[in-house]
Write a protein that binds this DNA or RNA. Sequence first.
DNA 1: GACCAACGTTGGTTCCACCAACGTACTGAA
DNA 2: TTCAGTACGTTGGTGGAACCAACGTTGGTC
Lengths: 150, 150
Amino acid sequence: MDNAAPQSPAGLSTTPSWLLNQSASHAARLLSEGFAAHDLRGYHYRLLATLAEDGPASQADLGRRCAIDRSDVVAAINDLAGRGLVVRAPDPADRRRNVISATDAGADEARRMGATLERVQADLLAPLSATEREQLTRLLTRLLRHHSRH
Amino acid sequence: MDNAAPQSPAGLSTTPSWLLNQSASHAARLLSEGFAAHDLRGYHYRLLATLAEDGPASQADLGRRCAIDRSDVVAAINDLAGRGLVVRAPDPADRRRNVISATDAGADEARRMGATLERVQADLLAPLSATEREQLTRLLTRLLRHHSRH
DNA sequence: GACCAACGTTGGTTCCACCAACGTACTGAA
DNA sequence: TTCAGTACGTTGGTGGAACCAACGTTGGTC
């Protein structure tokens, strides 16, 4: 990744898992570069965006929705709370839970990061036409849906 | 990833970079589980397969072809050499270089891991028809090719 | 009231990707 | 031919992402 690939590994380059890996790796790099301007990382965005869109939720619930381990949610929410982007409050209805809510600043940051995400998205999909993008989205969605339940 | 996803994050679930990330993550998990039976990891397979298919190469060259940093190639080749799957020899034509070659045992292992890879591949792409698999491969290849030179 | 499940939290581990710096060796231009 | 620049292998880091085990607390159930 430190320079242009001269050629791909012979048989590997047609392997879907290789292509997926490389594409995702590339996307992650672009995304991480973009998010760096906000001094936040992928986990933070997933959580913040989910909170901003779907409203307050418990940490366990956030973890399930964002596909982030409970223990990692703790750390990420700590970061976000430390910046005042999010508030952690005990759930009066269930004293095991914390209710996490995005603050106004958090919602703003979510919007800004969303814009960054869109820009990166456009960058990533530049070589594909609109219908091709939709094709890709559809295929990957099918893949995920098949594997994510059972 | 530790249980079935109840629902995906609202707006995120249509984002190509999210889909790519999740799909690749899933593929990587399957692959890593498969490779664990060989007591080897992704880096090892990339290198071993490239050596077995394309013949001996220098470490820097391997790194470029497999998209692995030079410093990580060192460690992985150390592992492989320690198991007798690969041989490291000084290049008489350029004393900076090492020529890495797969041993017979290495070629065997590459074949076995290749079989594991195919199995995982089939598993991963189970929900897709043959033409859809080809579509996906084509789209991802286009994506990579566009981003990998300049 | 006992049992099991879920929650938040702590403190790990592994893999992957990447970077800086060093000494050695090659290469090309002055 | 010397010298600057580059490539190579190697060491020793960094950080993010994903994951796991265990604990005390709390809720629901039998």
